Amino acid sequence: GPREVTMKKGDILTLLNSTNKDWWKVEVNDRQGFVPAAYVKKLDSGTGKELVLALYDYQ
């Protein structure tokens, strides 16, 4: 199956793709996968990378 990404509340993840309104593709610890968009919030990183903050645990 697809590689699952797990996250804990407060984690910072790299946002790869947010074109789908329900599932965003993120990368964390060299793993890529989809997380519910409602579970993360975009951060203003000030760099080229888009980052998101995990609002809830997800696994």
Rank of each mutant, 00 (worst) to 15 (best):
L51W: 09
F34W: 15
A37C: 05
D11K: 03
N29E: 10
I12Q: 04
G10W: 04
D44L: 11
K25T: 06
A37L: 02
L53G: 02
W24K: 00
D30W: 06
L55D: 01
T47K: 10
G10Y: 04
G33Q: 06
E50D: 12
L55Y: 03
L16M: 06
E4R: 15
D30Q: 09
E27S: 09
T6P: 05
D30H: 10
D30A: 09
D11A: 06
Q59E: 13
A37N: 02
P2R: 14
D44P: 14
L43E: 03
T19F: 09
W23P: 01
D22E: 11
W24C: 03
T47D: 15
G46W: 10
S45G: 12
T47H: 12
P36M: 05
D44N: 12
L16C: 05
D22R: 14
G1K: 12
V26A: 01
G1W: 14
L15P: 00
N29G: 14
P2T: 13
R3M: 14
W23M: 04
Y39R: 04
D44C: 15
V26C: 03
G46C: 11
A54R: 01
D22P: 02
Y58G: 01
E27G: 08
D30P: 02
E4I: 15
L51T: 08
K41N: 05
R3G: 14
S18M: 09
M7N: 00
T6D: 08
N17I: 07
V28M: 13
F34C: 13
K9L: 04
K49C: 08
Y56F: 13
V5F: 15
R31I: 15
G46I: 13
V52Y: 07
N29I: 05
D57R: 04
M7V: 06
D22S: 11
V5R: 02
A38H: 12
Q59L: 10
T6M: 12
G10R: 02
N20Y: 07
T19I: 08
L53I: 15
D11T: 06
R31D: 06
D30L: 07
L51S: 07
G33I: 15
T6G: 07
V40R: 01
S45I: 11
S18R: 08
K41T: 10
T19C: 11
D30I: 03
S18V: 05
G33W: 14
E27C: 14
T19L: 08
V5P: 04
S18T: 09
V52M: 03
P36L: 06
K49Y: 09
W24A: 02
K21R: 12
Q32T: 13
N29K: 07
G33M: 15
E4A: 15
P36F: 06
V52P: 00
T6I: 14
P36A: 04
V52N: 00
E4G: 15
V28H: 13
A54P: 00
E50Y: 10
Q59N: 14
A38I: 10
P36G: 03
P36W: 06
D11Y: 04
E27W: 10
A37Y: 03
N17Y: 06
Y58S: 01
V40D: 01
I12L: 06
L55S: 01
Q59V: 14
D11I: 03
